[in-house]
Design a protein around this nucleic acid. Structure first.
Lengths: 353, 353
DNA sequence: CGAATGTCCGTAAACGTTTACGGAAAAGAC
DNA sequence: GTCTTTTCCGTAAACGTTTACGGACATTCG
């Protein structure tokens, strides 16, 4: 009793609302859910009362009955040493996803896997407890257990980033191959022959993909990418600084360097500034994703532009399609998409001297 | 039938598990929930089976029965022109919160209110549908309707940031007063007399609080803060650039400027670099929150340090206390805390010439 | 050996919804 | 007027849990 009080609190449910309106709970539910078999006048009364008392159906009851939560998740792995893309990156994606999903009546929620937790265990908890109907997973590893798990569980998901897997699954990724080709082409036209690549550690898949793509693009032009020019460092400011140190220490210094993340550019610029090397003149730098930092560096950074909001909307739309397909029992479609990026010329890349 | 199939899918529930073990669902539930009245051997069998088949209780059923979701939320308002603190800021807070809450058996989830949505309506949906047991709201406005709503609804919440309100509510905020005092003191000791403040627009509460605090600290030293030295610009790189433009345009230029957000520092440094003004020599700059950007600026930025992970843990702990108090029917405690920040001396602040 | 106690488990109600079903009343057809 | 159709609403079952309650059986005690 006292327990019930503390549980119920003063919040009202569908019974209270029905009693107040002198109609049955079935009618209240039908009215709010926009079903046809309810009188227009009655519906109006119900909606007004719900509005007035601040009533929305309890999501737990609803989910339980419907077998779905109406919730879409996005899983982010927090990395203490930030060996991943800059986090600000995600915000614009969230914005686009949220905007699309809410227009379709779905809710959107982000799950942050702590830096001290196992991503697979974390994801399993979310899935087993049925917290969401579908999920976007990000920061894909080169081989990622999460994929096998979700496929086997037949849970709707999209991987933001590719991954090596024998399974068939939906993914979308930035067009690293296209970026590599454009970057290498640009630098080669400027006369560069010895080009370094700064990238992430090998188990982060896109670092690997990007280096591979650069190697191909170089090969097409009769150039090679020796191992000592692949500089693996954390994708951070200090990682960029470290890249600079390693470049400066080389006996046969490259004339250009391509970065897989713009955060690195900041550290790189600073070490160059310390030793009076001018980007675009003494050495060429090409960055990756367009970020405000890039525009504000001096000289401005040559980088690539990607409309993150649109990308988020794409994710929202397609995860919804997967969820719908599963809900209606149809077999789930499989999506895969490479998102194109546009090169923005800055002053950090110039002809060889 | 076919409908049931598509709903149920192949996922198993407590009945399936009980049938497989040849015991009742009650026992399964008790075993998994660690109740005393279940045989140790039986419990072991249940736990192993659950592990083997990947079973966790369906959260909807659980929430419905218990009247609580075991979920803690964090509401972030996405701002397209980023008139708020840098977003990377939040990640470390999430990390701390997630870490604390998961150690207490609670789940943590972040809700992003899209830039095209009304924050109050967004929050109401979350609350009315009982998506979470408690929530941290951030980016407080000077007067914030969300507070009144949550107080009236008796929903456990903590405001991350103060706000003017007649209501009593729990909050935690950075110690803007302390920062202002230290920054002003530091600059005054260096001989500065004419100090500008770069801040956010007036409806963001902390911008207002900070300017007010600076004004007090200046007054204590017999100095004033004329209106033309309060520079309201977006807390972005270009906002910082704009601040620089305004400073350069002044007939009686201040010798120092205090920023309420370090993102601004980037733009400010660049315009100064363009016109060959050296921070710390020709003009002094004091930043706000410690960010890697700050360390990597040249000359290094004088700024303030805050352990964001600890701050997140504090939020997790105290929102949990509020939820527990409400669950047991006790009256909810009220927390308020100013989080201290430590000044990190850089080379961007120096004596007047 | 009977009674009292303790250990463990099954039963069933409840949580707040949605929705298939059936039926009452109103409307239309003849 | 009756018969059919339509419109609208109430009833009750179901979703997957947790937990109060009671009872079966084993154990202890006198």
């Amino acid at each position: 009793m006292t327990n019930e009080d503390s549980k119920r609190n003063f919040l009202l449910n569908i019974h209270d609302l029905a009693k107040h309106l002198n109609i049955s709970i079935g009618t209240v539910s039908r009215a709010l859910n926009g079903r046809a078999d309810v009188n227009a006048k009655t519906r109006q009364r119900v909606i007004e009362a719900a509005q007035k008392f601040g009533y929305s159906p309890n999501q737990s009851g609803r989910s339980l009955r419907q077998g779905s939560t109406g919730l879409v998740g996005f899983m982010v792995i927090i990395n203490r040493d930030r060996e991943t893309r800059g986090e600000a990156f995600f915000m614009s994606i969230f914005d686009g996803m949220q905007s699309y999903l809410s227009s379709r009546g779905l809710d959107f929620v982000v799950h942050f896997c702590g830096s001290d937790e196992d991503p697979v265990a974390y994801l399993r908890r979310i899935a087993e407890r049925r917290l969401v109907d579908g999920i976007v997973i990000s920061q894909m590893y080169r081989t990622d257990k999460r994929i096998d798990y979700l496929v086997q569980r037949k849970m709707p998901f999209i991987a933001f980033g590719r991954s090596e897997s024998s399974k068939i699954f939906s993914w979308m990724d930035l067009d690293f191959e296209g970026v590599a080709e454009k970057a290498i082409n640009h630098l080669c036209l400027l006369g560069h022959r010895r080009i370094a690549i700064a990238t992430a550690s090998n188990d982060i898949n896109y670092g690997y993909v990007f280096v591979d793509a650069c190697r191909s693009s170089l090969a097409k032009r009769g150039l090679s990418l020796p191992d000592e020019l692949v500089l693996q460092e954390p994708l951070t400011e200090s990682g960029g600084y470290r890249v600079g140190e390693r470049l400066l220490a080389m006996e046969n210094r490259p004339t250009a360097v391509v970065l897989v993340d713009n955060t690195m550019a900041i550290g790189l610029y600073h070490i160059f500034q310390d030793v009076k090397i001018i980007p675009g003149k003494d050495i060429s730098i090409v960055g990756f994703d367009a970020s405000p930092n890039g525009e504000f560096l001096r000289p401005s950074l040559t980088q690539f532009e990607v409309p993150l909001g649109q990308l988020g909307r794409w994710l929202g739309e397609h995860i919804m399609l997967l969820i719908e397909a599963k809900g209606t029992g149809k077999k789930m479609p499989v999506f895969s998409k490479l998102w194109p990026m546009k090169m923005i010329l800055g002053d950090s890349s110039g002809p060889t001297s």
